[in-house]
């Protein structure tokens, strides 16, 4: 029983840690690709393309690690995350398109940025996950 505990908990902790590393790596790679062209290699398109490519590769690694993490959860935790993902995706598509239409119709006085949508999806996912976990308490 002790071995089982060690194996399951150790696997869970390792997956969380690895997901954190991949997510952190992706954020750093995105930051370099985004700010590098502005502050370090202005006008060098080749370097920009290389760093965007690296950020994309790290992002793919993060996606695969997230899949591994979700699959390592137990069935109730997985249900909570799947529901949270469904809500986030729905909110992202519905609110994102409405936001874009508002921009196209010039109802809002600023441009609809993709970063706003990413933040909305992230916050929705967090809230939906906590709400889901709270429901099964």
């Amino acid at each position: 029983m002790e071995t089982k505990q060690n194996t399951w908990k150790a696997t869970s902790k390792r997956n969380i840690r690895q997901l954190a590393y991949w997510t952190g790596g992706w954020v750093v790679a995105m930051a370099i690709a985004s700010f590098g062209q502005k502050y370090f290699w202005e006008g060098n398109t080749v370097l920009t393309i290389i760093f965007i490519f690296i950020a994309t590769l790290v992002g793919v690694g993060m996606i695969l690690m997230n899949r591994k993490y979700i699959n390592s959860l137990d069935e109730m935790q997985r249900k909570v995350h799947i529901e949270a993902m469904a809500i986030s995706l729905g909110v992202g598509v519905v609110i994102g398109l409405s936001y874009s239409l508002l921009d196209q119709a010039n109802v809002i006085g600023f441009d609809a940025e993709i970063a706003d949508l990413v933040m909305l999806i992230g916050i929705t996912y967090l809230i939906a996950t906590f709400a889901g976990l709270n429901r099964y308490k």
């Binding site: 029983m1 089982k4 399951w8 137990d74 069935e75 109730m76 935790q77 976990l133 308490k137």
Partner: peptide
């Protein structure tokens, strides 16, 4: 202990 034995979280056993 039951959670460990069936390899799920304690929260899942409680639910």
């Amino acid at each position: 202990e039951l959670a460990v034995a069936v390899e799920v979280s304690r929260q899942t056993i409680n639910a």
